[in-house]
């Protein structure tokens, strides 16, 4: 015992000015750290433990999924004051969706992009949409000569119009990229995102060759009266801040047998949507009778979104 004290005493004895200053500096440093990361605490106070601990969508039991849907519905109702309903739409067995677009009659009015904007509860200020319409130069399919920012009456002379949205690839590079399986392809071919699982690394956004993915750089803002209250977990519910989102072929409509919002909005009937496994469907007729093509075929992504010229 005496020996121990003999060793420790010099240490205690060294509680000199220097040690005291060190202790003081450490205390000040810690306090400064706490102050610096204060905004983090403000943010954390708004997060719920249930959300933090929530499992991956595909690992939720039916009961757990219902609890999650109830929680999200409650939150959405509180925030908007509207009777929001968030449901879970499962793929229909025997259905694989495909989309075709007739470039000969598309006039570039961008009503499809606008319909997407409203249907899918996109941020109003940035006028977000899953669809970008390119004004292209007749004579080639070269996006280098395309322009998505046109502001003049359409259709313009010597131009044609090419709306681009998620191509719902059969071999999706974005799904391969995701480190945590937050995005995957469903039975009916639709590539979806679990907004409550995504960590927001944006590797999928780098991987997508079609500029189809969008990131929530901040929380989307939509006036309560404009919110589309018919929502689904994997589609148009209002996305959290900091996660990816993308076109989901309006699965909350199409899995109920309805058509995508962009198709319904099209004034020229340029858009054809349906189940490719159904031999009597319109999409099947287009694929069998029109000379269709896909974007960037050389990349081997096998898009389920087809384009064709009619004349």
């Amino acid at each position: 015992m005496t020996e121990r004290r003999a060793i420790e005493l010099p240490v205690i004895g060294e509680v000199t000015r220097r040690t005291a200053i060190k202790a003081g500096a450490t205390t000040l440093g810690l306090a400064a750290w706490a102050t610096a990361i204060q905004p983090l605490f403000e943010w954390a106070s708004e997060q719920s433990v249930d959300e933090f601990l929530q499992k991956h969508y595909r690992e939720l039991s039916p009961g757990e999924l219902q609890a999650v849907l109830n929680r999200l519905t409650d939150e959405a109702r509180r925030e908007t004051g509207r009777p929001v309903v968030i449901r879970d739409h499962q793929p229909i067995p025997g259905v694989v969706f495909a989309y075709a677009l007739n470039l000969s009659i598309c006039i570039g009015c961008r009503r499809c992009a606008e319909a997407c904007h409203r249907e899918n509860n996109h941020d109003r200020a940035t006028h977000q949409s899953y669809i970008r319409v390119f004004e292209m130069q007749k004579g080639g399919i070269d996006f280098e000569c395309g322009n998505a920012g046109y502001h003049h009456p359409v259709p313009a002379k010597d131009k044609y119009y090419m709306p681009v949205q998620c191509q719902q690839c059969e071999n999706p590079p974005c799904v391969k990229a995701c480190p945590i399986e937050a995005t995957w392809q469903e039975e009916d071919g639709i590539v979806v995102v679990d907004y409550n699982w995504c960590i927001g690394c944006r590797y999928c956004e780098a991987a997508c060759p079609y500029h189809a993915r969008r990131f929530n750089w901040e929380k989307p803002q939509i006036p309560a009266e404009e919110v589309n209250i018919q929502q689904s977990y994997l589609s148009n519910r209002i996305r959290p801040q900091g996660v990816m989102e993308k076109c989901h072929f309006c699965l909350h409509r199409t899995r109920e047998g309805r058509l995508p919002a962009c198709l319904e909005a099209c004034p020229t009937g340029a858009r054809v949507f349906g189940n490719v496994l159904d031999p009597h469907s319109e999409i099947r007729w287009v694929l069998e009778n029109k000379r269709v093509f896909v974007l960037k075929e050389e990349l081997g992504t096998k898009p389920r979104f087809y384009y064709f010229f009619d004349k």
Partner: peptide, 18 residues
């Protein structure tokens, strides 16, 4: 990361490690 709070989704076993 947009959601650093979800970093645990990357832990093999706990999260889903692709």
């Amino acid at each position: 990361l947009g959601r650093p709070d979800r970093l645990w989704h990357m832990i093999p076993g706990l999260g889903k490690f692709n």
